[in-house]
Write a protein that binds this DNA or RNA. Structure first.
Length: 880
RNA sequence: GCCCGAGUGGCGGAACUUGGUAGACGCACGGGACUUAAAAUCCCGAGGAGGCAACUCCGUGGGGGUUCGAUUCCCCCCUCGGGCACCA
């Protein structure tokens, strides 16, 4: 039999509170929130159209992957967005604030394999659940614009874009060495490999050579880089990461002829000024000329073995800066085209085929890697750049000199500053036809083929006679078949599904097969913000007029983890779509706010590892009784068992409290440390606001808020001015700084002041001032805690919806103080404070100050040598 | 190694954009009121040291500097977090 006593205390508490409450009903978040969410829905208050009143504002938060349940990171992200949405709406903007689902992806497949449920069903169940969770938070979205990327109506346009890009040569297939994640059984783009590990499952990534589809993001490398300078609404660190990722460098390509051969090796260098210091050449093991060069020495097993071994190494083994430099002499030589000197050709493990030309001219005197390599294999150093303050010598150098200086041992360039010499040397190379100035990028083309089922099919057909044939536009969409069996083994199920795979060739009608790879899900999220502008468009991906009206997104809000991947891809897509002719704007996101993570202390049991707070009783593990160690504050994650379920918090305190806390505990861009007591505090504050209005309701019902017309006495003026200063502060904090935490604290101060205010009388004037104060509190708080405010607004006797009303404005007059506190310093040290009418002239202030005992004590009979006066703020008497 | 960001009470954080009262607001804590009592609520207190007190000194990671005055600007160093990392 089940015991029901457990629920007693809570019920008891509620009842006793009810009895104590003399006036109105107690604050009951659950019923209030439900009530207003329904009313908002009926009134359709978040619906927007292009024809709406006010200036357009496109506000967007990164859409979620429908994993099943929202987490605190979502709560934070979307609370930030909702505050802005409601604030902007009250300020008269026409706010587009949509929501949708990034709903293709691996977890759906994994769930399907584990639980025998179809990915589509799993995904749509999750969407339904998460949608109701978001609604429960009271987030104001125009749900009529909801999109799901796994819907045919959406992904068909992925395919359309792909075909457009294919036509323009921006989508192409090539055989190349790619990143293979064994955990996800699929290929990954370079951006999706973090430190040699898969960004999603942290498996060690392997190299595989496969036929893959690529999008030519490198075509836009220069523009993507250039526009980084124009994105002044983006955080610097994100721009820095993007610039680093694009990795533009300028230098020269130079051909080194191979001796006894017709061929030459093309190298890339950023330091043409060190050309005279080249003492050998290093090739990547994958370099196509390696096999030819070592041919004459093929009986030397050591060479081939070395090359084979390095080629097999995974990227994490190869690329670690710690790993030892290794190489082998190929037996071949080539000629430095400038000096005519013969230098040996090596294969070296640290040279990457993916960058530059896969071949490097080695200048051990001026490059640390070459230096280490040369020392190891006894190769000579040749100094060609000398620093200004000393003279280098090959025999005593302990490290390469990579700095600037004067050129030496470099023929006609001797004596020149090396920086100045670089362009001259490039010109010289070009004149003589042995090299040319070039620019290279670290950015690679975006490999989008995924060997997975739950994604958008790539619209390509392979025909034995016609070759690679794009699916005709009329045949779109290529529908992802649902009658598949997912086993998790033997590759993508599409490969084995003959009804999908076999297809007549669109050109010749002969037997052909479909591409069975699907697209990287980052393709889906690269243009979703455009689809929101016309989510039901059937003749194209989006309506150009609507997109041009709404774009760019004025404010984008999301996690910094997408700094390189999503944000770079989306920028690329925007530019490509512009060049297809569908869009006018160059950049998708005008301003970007990257919010911090939600963190919480981790708990560790010496025998069980991470434990959740529920598994702990009085610092002891419930299972084994060991003392629990309190660990560091870390990002909430299931594996560390330090998550908080938003549903639980909403259930206990309501959506308003949950939102308020997540906004109050830290400014948005910083990490937020979860605190149960802090949530309690936010709840207490809302109760305090509720009671404030409850207690004063009788005084101020049927009273019109003070409008500034009649003159006020001191006490009334104080409150009135505080109200206006608060409006100013909260407005600035929200719109200019996104510092919601300080905005909320300013509202708290106002509430505290109203509680302590004793200026209320029987007269209408004082009541009207109080009414102004209270209505202002409710309005200012409403973007943060919309439900309780809407309810209080109604209880105050207002008939229209608060959500439809306007943001309070402040008057300059009311911001002025009549009396100011002036800080009095003597020699820069605080010695007194005096209250004095605003804008008192310096002379009068000086007189008042020198009349003050606390000041004169410090001045004594010494001479005041200087007086610094900051009007209405500070006076400093300099004695020394 | 390189590039960002940060370091402030017992804790989360304010003030930094424009040098001008350091510690707003909240949490935790202490005291009081209400209550038979507790909870809730309301009011008050609170950086540290010394002092009965008035008050004084110290204090924003450490050390220098500029200034009448530095948490804020400059230089050097330490610690933590993040990103990149043999990119030629």
């Amino acid at each position: 039999m089940q015991c029901t006593v457990v629920s007693m205390p809570a019920a008891y508490l509620q009842r006793s509170y009810w009895e104590d409450s003399r006036l109105g009903p107690r604050y009951d978040p659950e019923s209030i929130e439900k009530k207003w969410q329904e009313i908002w829905k009926e009134e359709d208050i978040f619906k927007v159209t292009e024809g709406g009143a006010g200036r357009k504002y496109y506000l967007l938060e990164m859409f979620p992957y429908p994993s099943g349940k929202i987490h605190m990171g979502h709560v934070r992200n979307y609370s930030i967005g909702d505050v802005l949405a409601r604030f902007l709406k009250m300020n008269g903007y026409n706010v587009l604030h949509p929501m949708g689902w990034d709903s293709f992806g691996l977890p759906a497949e994994n769930a399907a394999i584990q639980n025998n449920i179809h990915p589509a069903k799993w995904t749509f169940d999750n969407i339904n659940n998460m949608k109701s969770q978001l609604m429960r938070l009271g987030l104001g979205y125009d749900w009529d614009r909801e999109i799901a990327t796994c819907a045919q109506t959406y992904y068909r346009w992925n395919q359309w874009f792909f075909l457009k890009m294919y036509e323009k040569g921006l989508a192409y297939k090539k055989l190349s060495s790619v990143n293979w994640c064994p955990g996800c059984s699929t290929v990954l783009a370079n951006e999706q490999v973090e430190g040699g590990l898969c960004w999603r499952c942290e498996s060690s990534v392997e190299k595989k050579t496969l036929q893959q589809w690529f999008l030519k993001i490198t075509e836009y490398a220069d523009e993507l880089l250039e526009y980084c300078d124009k994105l002044d609404g983006w955080p610097d660190r994100v721009l820095v990461m993007q610039r680093n990722w694009i990795g533009k460098s300028t230098g020269a390509e130079i051909d080194f002829p191979v001796t006894n051969s017709e061929r030459s090796i093309k190298i890339f260098t950023t330091r043409p000024d060190t050309l005279w210091g080249v003492t050998f050449i290093s090739l990547a093991p994958e370099h196509p000329m390696v096999d030819t060069l070592i041919e004459p020495r093929k009986e030397d097993a050591g060479i081939r073995e070395f090359v084979e071994r390095i080629r097999k190494q995974g990227c994490d083994e190869r690329t670690g800066a710690l790993s030892e430099k290794e190489g082998v002499f190929t037996g071949a030589y080539c000629i430095n085209p400038l000096t005519g000197l013969k230098v040996p050709v090596y294969v070296a493990n640290f040279v990457l085929m993916e960058y530059g030309t896969g071949a490097v001219m080695a200048v051990p005197a001026h490059d640390q890697r070459d230096f280490e390599f040369a020392k190891k294999y006894g190769l000579p150093l040749k100094i060609v750049i000398n620093p200004l303050d000393r003279t280098l010598s090959p025999d005593t150098m302990e490290a390469a000199y990579e700095g600037d200086g004067h050129m030496i041992n470099s023929d006609r360039f001797d004596g020149l500053d090396n920086r100045d010499a670089m362009p001259a040397i490039v010109d010289y190379l070009e004149e003589r036809g042995i090299g040319r100035g070039v620019t290279t990028y670290r950015l690679r083309d975006w490999g989008i083929s995924r060997q997975r089922y739950w994604g958008c099919p790539i619209p390509i057909i392979y025909c034995r006679s016609c070759g690679t044939v794009p699916v005709p536009y009329n045949d779109l969409p290529v529908i992802l078949p649902e009658d598949v069996v997912l086993t998790g083994k033997g590759g993508s199920p599409l490969e084995h599904l003959d009804t999908f795979r076999s297809v007549p060739c669109p050109d010749c009608g002969g037997p052909a097969t479909r591409e069975t790879d699907t697209m990287d899900t980052f393709v889906d999220s690269s243009w979703y913000f455009l689809r929101y502008t016309s989510p039901n468009m059937e003749d194209g991906p989006f309506d150009t007029a609507a997109a041009n009206f709404w774009m760019p997104v004025d404010q984008y809000v999301g996690g910094v983890e997408h700094a390189v991947m999503h944000l770079l891809y989306a920028r690329f897509f925007t530019k490509a779509i512009r060049d297809i002719g569908l869009l006018e704007c160059d950049e998708p996101f005008k301003k970007l706010l990257t919010q911090g993570m939600v963190c919480k202390e981790i708990l560790r049991c010496p025998t069980h590892g991470y434990v959740s707070p529920e598994d702990m009783a009085e610092d002891k593990c419930k299972v084994c009784g060991e003392t629990i160690e309190r660990g560091q504050i870390e990002k909430m994650s299931k594996s560390k068992k330090n998550t908080i379920d938003p549903d639980r918090i909403i259930g206990r305190y309501g959506a308003d409290t949950t939102r308020l806390f997540s906004l109050f505990a830290a400014p948005p861009e910083r990490d937020l440390e979860w605190s149960d007591e802090g949530v309690e505090g936010s709840y207490r504050f809302l109760n305090r606001v509720w009671r404030l209005i409850d207690e004063r309701l009788q005084d101020i019902s049927d009273i019109t808020p003070y409008d500034g017309a009649q003159p006020l006495d001191k006490s009334l003026k104080e409150l009135h001015h505080l109200v206006h200063r608060t409006i100013y502060k909260v407005t600035v904090d929200i719109e200019e700084r996104f510092h919601f935490n300080t905005a909320i604290s300013a509202i708290m101060e106002l509430v505290n002041a109203i509680y302590l205010w004793e200026g209320i009388g029987e007269d209408t004037l004082s009541k009207s001032v109080l009414r102004e104060a209270i209505e202002t509190v409710v309005k200012l708080l409403s973007p943060f805690a919309p439900h309780i405010c809407e309810e209080l607004w109604e209880r105050l006797g207002n008939e229209s919806l608060l959500s439809k009303s306007t943001w309070p404005s402040y008057t300059k007059d009311a911001l002025m103080r009549e009396e100011v506190t002036i800080v009095v310093q003597v020699d820069g040290k605080l010695r007194a404070k005096i209250n004095i009418p605003t804008d008192t002239p310096q002379k009068t202030v000086e007189e008042a100050v020198l009349d003050n005992e606390a000041v004169t004590r410090w001045v004594a009979d010494r001479e005041v040598r200087k007086v610094i006066y900051i009007p209405n703020k500070l006076i400093n008497l300099v004695i020394r």
